[in-house]
Simulated scan of single mutants.
Amino acid sequence: MRILFVGDVVGRSGRTAISQYLPGMVRDWSLDLVVVNGENAAGGFGITESVYQELLDAGADAVTLGNHAWDQREALVFIERAPRLIRPANFPRGTPGRGAALIEAKRGQRALVVNAMGRVFMTPFDDPFAAVGNELDACPLREAADAIVVDFHCEATSEKQGIGFFCDGRASLVVGTHTHVPTADHQILPGGTAYMTDAGMTGDYESIIGMQKEEPLRRFITGIPSGRWEPALGPATLSGVAVETDDRSGLALRVAPVRVGGRLAPALPGFWAG
């Protein structure tokens, strides 16, 4: 399978990059599965039903969330009728929605998408290792799913690396989100799972983690909030990671970073060229 994971879409600029670049990627790279993190897609904070549909219409097969899942209150309601919208699996019992979904990919393959949230320097929800482990046990790679993608929404690099090795050999891809900066450690772990500590954001990088610079800078300098954080509106870089899996095992054969548009140096998966 050919899998593309797209990092945190931030505001209108990020959504514009998705609509501009993603349909062509799906076509030109013959993608089987596209997973997009959309937790910052609506005005930089949360997601709405119309934005969720916009991401699907552009080519996403599943949309994952994170700590801003409920910043747009309507998400608490519409997530129940949005089967491809996936919030962290380790949210408390009774939280609306689902933490994993077995979806049909573009050519009929079965793909399990799991979302979880870290606890280091974040709200200490339930154990993410146990939550992810339960989802992998319930839908094993090769037996019940042709591919498995785990989006670990997490602050600490060490915790992301830990979940990578915890899932090694049981998932096709483990990728971190949340910090909005792409890392250079894309690799295939010893057990065959593709891994990247953070996919980066799909947003304007002339910013502070996707937000207009003035208010964050003012807070750093003075310690005094004086306004809302607003998404930066310049041209966005679509950032993510591409993975090709073995059809027999579901494990990764190749992994590469993806960066298109905006300010960052471009990066394309050369193994899909032509």
Rank of each mutant, 00 (worst) to 15 (best):
E214R: 14
D28K: 15
G99R: 08
Q161F: 03
E155V: 13
F5P: 09
D198I: 12
L233K: 10
R219P: 04
G223R: 03
I188S: 04
G99Q: 05
W29K: 13
T245F: 09
T197S: 15
G59V: 04
A130C: 00
C154G: 11
D137L: 05
F45C: 02
R119T: 15
D71L: 13
T48N: 07
G200L: 11
G162T: 02
S19P: 00
P231K: 15
G274Y: 05
A145K: 09
A267N: 14
E54V: 06
P257Y: 00
M201T: 13
V120I: 02
K106F: 04
A199W: 09
I103Q: 03
G270C: 07
M122P: 13
P128A: 00
R15H: 02
L56K: 15
H178T: 12
D185P: 01
D8T: 07
Q109T: 02
F125P: 05
R12D: 03
M1V: 03
T64C: 03
A232G: 02
R254A: 01
I86E: 00
A236L: 13
I224K: 14
V6D: 10
S158P: 04
D185E: 03
R142N: 10
G44L: 06
L33D: 10
I47C: 09
P140S: 12
A69F: 07
V77G: 15
D246G: 11
A69H: 08
E54D: 11
N67S: 12
V6C: 11
D71I: 05
G94F: 09
T183R: 06
E230M: 13
Y52H: 15
F5I: 07
E206L: 14
R170M: 02
D168V: 09
P235Y: 01
G169Q: 11
